[in-house]
Design a protein around this nucleic acid. Structure first.
Length: 109
DNA sequence: ATGTTGACCTTAG
DNA sequence: CCTAAGGCCAACA
């Protein structure tokens, strides 16, 4: 059988979670890892996103770090791209950080 | 086989 | 704002 292991389960769950992030809201790598049942695997989430196919329809831009900041380097093209996507759906930055309230959709249920 | 790094981490101080 | 340390692990040299 194909390696239907932990990695695939993790990937599956994280993808689903990311897909469920409402427009105008964000989630942290660590939050997603934890919700997927793999606490302390935030970097694995990052790795997953890094390997995400370019044509993916997942709202990858809604994933930022726990400090409210975009994890790409400040002056990078990817950083601008992500920021642009977020701002286009109403997520704005003050001092390069988004309000913690943007994570609040997770606080229900 | 060993050590280091990470453009997509986190918390505490 | 910054540093340090914790944690986990794939990719790299």
């Amino acid at each position: 059988m194909s390696s239907s292991n932990i990695d695939d389960a993790f990937k599956e769950r994280v993808y689903t979670l990311i897909g469920s992030i409402p427009a105008g809201q964000v989630a942290a790598y660590g939050q997603l890892a934890k919700l997927a049942g793999f606490a302390n695997q935030s970097r694995a989430v990052g790795r997953l996103l890094k390997n995400l196919p370019e044509q993916s329809s997942l709202p990858w831009h809604r994933v930022i770090n726990s400090q409210g900041k975009i994890s790409f380097p400040e002056e990078s093209e990817k950083h601008f791209q992500q920021r642009r996507l977020l701002e286009s759906e109403g997520v704005f930055f003050k001092n390069n950080k988004v309000s913690m309230k943007k994570y609040q959709w997770l606080e229900n249920s």
